[in-house]
Design a protein around this nucleic acid. Sequence first.
DNA 1: TGTTAGCACTCAAAACGAGGGAGTGCTAAT
DNA 2: ATTAGCACTCCCTCGTTTTGAGTGCTAACA
Lengths: 349, 349
Amino acid sequence: MAVDTSLSERKLIILKAIIQNYLETGEPVGSRTLSKYTELNLSSATIRNEMADLEDLGYIFQPHTSAGRIPSDKGYRLYVDMLMEEKEQEITEREDAMLEKADKVEKVLQQAAKVLASNTNYATMVSSPVQSRNTLKFIQLSQVDEEQIVAVIVLGGNVIKNKIIEVGETLSNENLLKLNMLLNTTLNGMSIDQITLGLIARLKEQAGIHSQVVGDVLDAVAEIIHVEDDMKIYTSGATNIFKYPELSDKQSAQEIISAFEEKQQLADLVTETLASENNHGIQVYIGDETPVKTMRDCSVVTATYELGEGMKGTIGIIGPKRMDYEHVMKTLKTLQSELDAIYNKNPKE
Amino acid sequence: MAVDTSLSERKLIILKAIIQNYLETGEPVGSRTLSKYTELNLSSATIRNEMADLEDLGYIFQPHTSAGRIPSDKGYRLYVDMLMEEKEQEITEREDAMLEKADKVEKVLQQAAKVLASNTNYATMVSSPVQSRNTLKFIQLSQVDEEQIVAVIVLGGNVIKNKIIEVGETLSNENLLKLNMLLNTTLNGMSIDQITLGLIARLKEQAGIHSQVVGDVLDAVAEIIHVEDDMKIYTSGATNIFKYPELSDKQSAQEIISAFEEKQQLADLVTETLASENNHGIQVYIGDETPVKTMRDCSVVTATYELGEGMKGTIGIIGPKRMDYEHVMKTLKTLQSELDAIYNKNPKE
DNA sequence: TGTTAGCACTCAAAACGAGGGAGTGCTAAT
DNA sequence: ATTAGCACTCCCTCGTTTTGAGTGCTAACA
């Protein structure tokens, strides 16, 4: 992660200038432009020499002879690494009062995606937290009618799961009551991954003879608890990519928007992000670095947030390689801490 | 709705041929093409004359002089009206075994959208049923901890709603039990709109003296029941519009896909569709006819389905004006009946 | 009277070709 | 080490030409 220091100070400045200029304009930038742009009064010729060097080193390249230079993936990488190293810039003030009533987590996340998109003009995604390390808080089975039982499970952070269980034969009221007691006393407070098949088997024994039905019900409960709450992903601003000509030709637009619609690929992105521990939870994928193949021509910036212990989720921004990394990273950081704040304001666990 | 009979038989055939050809190719169709295409052996010259007439009548037009003709909205309209009048074609066989485990309605609808999209190559949307006339099947309050109560409500069709209720002071176990009894005995089997504020007030009285807390809880329950389950809309295949050049220029693509992403406009479409009672639940909007302004250049075909009494939803297909109406309408019809089948296979209400 | 062949005409789209211009690399002078 | 100057490259723009599909009209024909 350390910045490559093999570049002279001057080269660094020039590279930075090239990138910044390109971020703004989206056009290849030439030596003449730079010689005015930068404060180190150099002639275009000198700049040209330096640029030739930079090109040899692979930080920039020209789309064709006699065009200006544009940053390569390697160049971008160096740039964001520099940004990363800069001392933690103070979190800027932000007054969006969007985070009212943190009633339903889902609503908040959806909102977050929207706000983010309109703030940055890029496409954004927010994944709902996966509660693998979450704990069980309450569980209850209730008879709906002769053939149906509804199971309700409340997890930490007030995540509620439920399911209708179809039973072959009726379960007596008292047995149901016993089951509820049993489940609550044994499972309460346990983390989800502590609830193994073995544990369930032991429970079945304890429940005793009412084998068939009780067994079925317990199996169903186990299933509910473990069923991946198929990671929900909220997206917004997918059409922002039309704002960047380099992405908006039919081919790419098609692919990127598909990825946004299907969400499967975004899910991959999320798991990848969650897996890798990195500095401050911010991660930048440039071009080929991204795990999602259809986004070769984009950059993806992700941040992980955490709502209490183990409830981790991801916020992501997808845009052109020439995205405004500095702004994006800052925005992500503030959103991160806002999500934190929500949780602390509602400390129900 | 009656077909305009002012056209000669021959003109009708020619018009139909023009439309069908245009549906396939997307190119303006010329007289020479038609003179071979149709079985009424006519020379191109004759066809030209007829076409000139048709143009005067407003059924077709040429995008520019010296181009072939393409159908106008009026032409399309005539065409689909003819299709509509054709005797109910037998529902074609269809073997997609997609409709397994009708466990979660949501999953099924989402699936339905996907299948539809891949079947038709258009963009599709399915709205979840709004259950205004749905009935309450079961309700239960349970104590999660000192300050929280979880309310679970099962509606017909196994739609489950739940919510955590924060209570100021603890509710005794026995009171909770009483409340549960009270709620179930009085509300069970009632349709949602029968449960009025007045009814709730009466309940409060019956519940007696435990005024504060009980009142709060009852209010919360009422709220849960009535909160609009903000009509969910599932979409799929939005990127299919890239397959039709006439829609895939940046401008339109942008707009249409935005509409798909935001969903607000689709929601309008749904309500519009549900409002208008029409033949067999199939409705076709051509070009300007559609209630969604950003889809001026599309055609929209919608069908309403019904899962039991009052649970109505909408399926929609959005595509170019030159969409394959016949196929689309057929497909929608079968999907309609498949959704019906699901409900009847799972007659839990 | 309805149909057809022929022909001149139109116009969008493709093909072509000549500048223009931004930008580079190199060399020679400072 | 820096810079001015210059020749060279190659993309882009813009105007022109060509092409070709398709039409409308007229005149001949059954």
